[in-house]
């Protein structure tokens, strides 16, 4: 592990700040994009183009009455919304935003990411249980089951990326994609990872945790005020983080396509700006896709989600991993 430097603190500060804000922007974007999809205008009254709408939303949430169910478990009910927010914020520690622009480079960064990312479900499940409401409970249970089912194919998809980098460090994963992005080398895992990322973020078509139509609000049925706001915030941070992870693992992180072949040497400031812009644009594209998918297609049923996870994605991801492992071994030992 590298020593913690001033750069680390600066990157951490900026990244956390940006991530918190990106959730607000994602809320605005979701409302505008959904409006665009639905032939509406969307929020356009608060500030220029309605850009201050997230602020108004937060103020509204803060001023609302905070209701706790009379027979709920009050402590857990209060703690639960914090968990997904904190775990979501923790992930930025290992994501490289540019050449040398990362908070820390730990040698098990991929494992750390998978671990932290899946911790978030505790908040949802505990919140669902502590609410003492049947709808919330069903939502929480669905969240737990879904998280377990999709963590596995996601892990296998990531593992097949590790085969190319030969290291669990995120920096190495990104650097191994300087010429060939993983989407070209490993398309099957890319598809699996994207699907799993949608499931992990609890977005349509995998939003049966909330399932507005059948479970009223799912795990957050009994939440109000800023506690609900936290869940809301966490959902959008998961969208942003999901987009970042898709970008990092399969779309070359901050690298332009085939950058190793044609990108000339440039000054460190220029390179930094370029890297961060490239990374941001890719993330934005995937965040847009998250929103786009949400407002277009229906949601799966619980048993269909399980079937897809266990019967389709898991075997495919394992075979993909094995075949890639054999191919790479063969390439290095017999051809290379």
């Amino acid at each position: 592990m590298e020593p913690v430097t001033t750069t680390s603190y600066i990157v951490l500060g900026i990244a956390l700040f940006m991530l918190l804000n990106s959730a607000a922007i994602a809320v605005y974007a979701e409302r505008r994009v959904s409006a665009f999809i639905q032939n509406r205008l969307g929020p356009n009254r608060v500030g220029p183009l309605g850009l201050f709408q997230p602020l108004a939303d937060v103020v509204k949430l803060l001023l609302k009455e905070d209701v706790t169910p009379a027979k709920g478990f009050k402590t857990i009910h209060a703690i639960a919304p914090v968990i997904p927010v904190v775990t979501a914020l923790m992930t930025v520690a290992v994501i490289p935003f540019g050449d040398g622009l990362y908070v820390t480079d730990i040698n098990a960064a991929v494992l750390y990411l998978l671990a932290v990312n899946s911790l978030g479900v505790y908040g949802v499940t505990l919140g669902g249980w502590a609410s003492n409401s049947k709808y919330s409970l069903l939502g929480g249970l669905r969240a737990a089951a879904q998280m377990i089912s999709y963590e596995l194919p996601m892990g296998m998809a990531v593992a097949s990326c590790i085969l190319f980098s030969g290291s669990l460090s995120m920096i190495d994963v990104v650097n191994s994609q300087e010429i060939w992005w993983n989407i070209f080398r490993n398309p099957i895992a890319a598809v699996i990872f994207i699907v799993a990322a949608f499931a992990e973020a609890n977005r349509t078509p995998f939003d049966l945790v909330e399932a507005e139509q059948e479970l009223v609000g799912g795990f957050h049925t009994e939440y109000s005020s800023m506690k609900f706001g936290m869940f809301f915030l966490a959902e959008y941070m998961h969208v942003v983080i999901g987009s970042m992870l898709i970008t990092t693992f399969f779309f070359g992180g901050y690298h332009l396509p085939f950058a190793g072949y044609w990108l000339p040497e440039m000054g460190s400031t220029m390179k930094m700006i370029l890297d961060v812009s490239v990374f941001t644009i890719k993330t934005l594209f995937w965040a847009f896709t998250f929103i786009w998918v949400r407002w277009t297609i229906p949601r799966f049923k619980y048993n269909q989600v399980m079937k897809l996870g266990w019967k389709r994605m898991l075997p495919i991801s394992i075979f993909n991993f094995l075949i890639l492992a054999v191919l790479i071994y063969g390439y290095h030992h017999w051809l290379g």
């Binding site: 999809i37 639905q38 349509t204 078509p205 139509q213 407002w295 277009t296 229906p298 949601r299």
Partner: peptide
């Protein structure tokens, strides 16, 4: 279709 989860359809 909205009950099935696709909200936009309702508006279309």
């Amino acid at each position: 279709v909205m009950d099935a989860g696709a909200v936009s359809f309702f508006i279309w």
